Computed example of a mutant assay.
Amino acid sequence: MSNTHTPSSQYRQEKSYKHGSSAYYSYLFVSEDKRLVIENLYAFLHEVTDILYITSDSSVARIKLAWWKEEIDKLFHGKAEHPISQALMEAVKTYGLSQQYFLYIIESVEMDLSHNRYLDWTSLKNFCTMQSGAFACLITQVLSDTTETNIRFAQQMGIAVQFANLLRKLGEDAAQGRIYIPMDFLREHQLKAADILNGKYSDEFKAFMQAQGHRAHELFTEAFALYANLNKASKKELRPCIIRAKLSLKLLKAIEKDQWRVLDKGISLSPLSKLFTAAKVWLLG
């Protein structure tokens, strides 16, 4: 799997995770061949999910997503045309990547096009399962054996990471007119969608975010419990997933310490903090 610098490889790198990001540190210690595949998987994820934000016409966005469904079919028949899917052709065979997980990710963006609100946890969980859960399963297929227990862990960890990220990006998404946190969660705390869209802070908002933070911790606890039941080899191979989770939790704690001010500002971890967490998990498990 060559990483020769070409216009196509540069494009994939630009679409993949950035140097210094949480994803970068999560896979920092993975072997080069597997890390290259993971970078290409992230490029696919961003290429598809960005359609939601860079295409103002929903009908055009649906045409692009339909094209990607056809492209994934071509990928699994060894006839990929896009630079990103071409780069994944060898990985599909080497790691037995599942075509369905790619399609779930595309379908999750179609869900976003259909509505910019989620009424309840069931609908949001379904979205997270199809997007981040499916993506985590692809990563797991690269890192370890595709066993039922490994996939269950990956899916749950993907859901937890995405929900925590949705809390972090609440204001950023609101600026796009989107609210991912279920409407019934808002009603439980006497909040309205307009409160989020207008960046309104209040005691009710703080209580609401504390409740969502608690929910995020519960999701991670469920994922860690599944990880604890994996065999020794799988635990070692899937340490990058734990690094990703630990970084999400660390960022969640930083946001909580900042009084949940996610509507008008961004909070991030320092590179040194990320590196320390990644090295600690990699060395100590």
Rank of each mutant, 00 (worst) to 15 (best):
Q131A: 09
Q155G: 11
L143S: 01
T146W: 10
D112V: 09
D145P: 04
I181C: 12
E148I: 01
D184M: 07
Q131I: 02
F102P: 03
M130N: 06
E110M: 01
T129I: 02
Q100E: 11
D184S: 14
G133P: 08
T149H: 00
I179N: 07
F102N: 01
I159F: 12
F163C: 05
T146V: 10
Q100C: 10
Y95S: 03
Q131V: 03
M183N: 14
E188L: 14
L138C: 15
D120M: 14
A134N: 13
Q131L: 04
L143P: 02
N116G: 05
L167K: 11
Y104C: 01
W121V: 07
M130F: 01
H189D: 08
H115D: 15
N116H: 15
F135V: 15
I159W: 06
M157F: 04
I179Y: 04
L166P: 06
F185G: 09
S98Y: 07
G96C: 10
T147V: 09
I106S: 04
F135A: 07
E90L: 04
Y118A: 07
H115E: 15
Q190G: 05
T140Y: 00
G158S: 14
C137F: 13
S144D: 11
I151H: 03
T147I: 01
I139Q: 14
S144G: 01
M183Y: 14
E188Q: 15
L166D: 07
M130W: 06
N165S: 15
D184R: 10
W121I: 05
K93F: 07
G133R: 05
L170G: 12
I139M: 11
D173M: 13
E188H: 14
A91M: 04
E110K: 08
Y104R: 14
A154I: 13
C137T: 05
W121M: 13
M111D: 15
L97S: 03
D184L: 07
P182I: 11
Q99E: 12
L124A: 07
W121K: 09
E90C: 02
I151D: 05
K169E: 08
L124E: 03
A160K: 11
Q176I: 01
R117D: 09
Q141G: 12
S132W: 02
E110A: 03
A134Y: 02
M157I: 13
L97F: 06
V142T: 12
V161N: 02
T146I: 04
H189G: 12
N165K: 01
Q176T: 08
C128Y: 09
R152Q: 14
Q176H: 15
Y118E: 15
L166R: 10
Q190C: 02
L138E: 00
E107K: 09
M130H: 14
A154H: 12
P182C: 09
T129E: 13
T122V: 06
D173I: 03
E172K: 08
L170E: 07
E90A: 04
Q141P: 01
C137K: 04
R187T: 15
W121S: 10
L124H: 09
E110F: 05
Y180F: 13
K169D: 10
F135M: 15
N126W: 00
L97P: 00
Y95D: 03
I151S: 05
M111N: 13
T94M: 10
